[in-house]
């Protein structure tokens, strides 16, 4: 070992913060430059190594379907790059929503990490994006969403595809917050044993298991964990980084980040900008219970108000129809159909 005595002990895992990407869902993509600057400075000072910035649905996500960004995401990315001292800035891209042109634009702004996100059975649409991210000199992370919808063996096969395209790190994302701790363990153990690159886990709070699942993932060999400040994110929220850091310290796991500094960021910067408390209410729990994509939450709330139907009913129907991430348009379809059915029933009674 050649480690110099004055260096901090090596981190046991890498924390990727997604407050400025997944958190964007929770504020309906209304981030402004000063908020981005404050969050980046706070996270950077707390020791976070990677900070992800983009529309919640990734680069190019600003749309009717997912909600328009208040401020162009490229301005937000540029602000983040300028505000950071040590942390790398990452972007997420969902092929089919954004294109490699978006990757080129953010690379020019100084983004060093590209997360290429895809439904957990469709890895073969990412080959071009992973290769181009590499060609652009970025770290390429393959990100398998809705991991509850595939088996451990199925996920491993998809992870191997991502690895074959050149992914430097593979992630599984519990986008519906539907996985129990045992299910996370089984998936991580299976994948870690079958790939030669590090694995990461992105957890959600819909079953109130985000921290427990992240720790379990670490214990099974995951060496990247995602979280957001105060849990700000889709559905009932993400793994709250300040809690994760605190639990890690108590468990003797070196997260490399300062829990007290993260608590300050959560309390003083993130919470004041939250339009609603990030809690597991009925709708949030239903997402995890029925396996529904977390980002549908607020869109379903809006459609429920517009068409006079129940948000819970919409979410359950989306689960029954096996909607995948990105199918926000189906929310309108379901809401209109439910409203029509209810009207027809009233008419006949």
């Amino acid at each position: 070992m050649t480690a110099v005595a004055t260096e901090a002990p090596a981190r046991d895992f890498r924390l990727i913060d997604s407050t400025l990407r997944d958190g964007s869902h929770a504020i309906s993509h209304q981030y402004e430059v000063p908020q981005v600057e404050a969050i980046v400075r706070g996270l950077d000072a707390a020791g976070v190594q990677v900070i992800e910035v983009a529309h919640g649905d990734g680069l190019g996500g600003s749309s009717f379907n997912y909600g328009f960004s208040k401020v162009n995401e490229l301005e937000l990315v540029e602000a983040a790059v300028n505000a950071t001292t040590n942390a790398q800035i990452a972007c997420l891209l969902v092929p089919g929503i954004g294109t490699v042109d978006d990757l080129r634009r953010v690379r020019d702004l100084g983004v060093g990490v590209a997360r290429i996100a895809v439904h957990c059975t469709e890895a073969d649409i990412t080959e071009q994006h992973i290769k181009i991210a590499h060609d652009l000199g970025m770290e390429a992370i393959g990100f398998l969403m809705m991991a509850h919808m595939n088996t451990p063996a199925g996920l491993l096969q998809q992870a191997r595809l991502l690895e074959s395209y050149g992914a430097d790190t593979i992630y599984i994302a519990d986008s519906a917050g539907a996985l129990t701790t045992n299910e996370v363990r089984a998936r991580v153990a299976e994948i870690v044993g079958g790939i030669n690159v590090p694995l990461g886990v992105h957890a959600h709070q819909n079953l109130q298991l985000a921290v427990a699942n992240s720790i379990a993932a670490y214990e099974e060999g995951a060496r990247n964990l995602d979280g957001t400040s105060a849990g700000l994110g889709a559905g009932a929220g993400n793994c709250p980084t300040e809690i994760l850091a605190a639990v890690c310290e108590k468990n003797g796991i070196n997260s490399g980040v300062n829990p007290l500094a993260l608590m300050d960021v959560a309390e003083e910067i993130t919470r004041p900008l939250m339009p609603r408390a990030q809690v597991v209410d009925r709708a949030g729990l239903l997402l995890g219970y029925a396996g529904v994509y977390g980002s549908f939450l607020l869109h379903a709330q809006k459609a429920a108000e517009r068409y006079g139907v129940s948000q819970a009913e919409i979410l359950l129907e989306l689960g029954a129809r096996k909607a995948v991430g990105g199918q926000e348009d189906m929310i309108i379809d379901v809401a209109v159909e439910l409203a029509r059915k209810h009207a027809a029933m009233e008419g006949t009674s």
Binding site: N65, E122, V324, G326, Q327, D329, I332, D333
Partner: peptide, 23 residues
């Protein structure tokens, strides 16, 4: 104009769906 494509692996396979939004 903006275009988005989503692949859905549900079984039995879903029919092709298209949604058009115009301002």
């Amino acid at each position: 104009g903006k275009a988005i494509i989503i692949l859905n692996p549900a079984e039995p396979p879903i029919l092709m769906r298209n949604t058009v939004f115009c301002a």
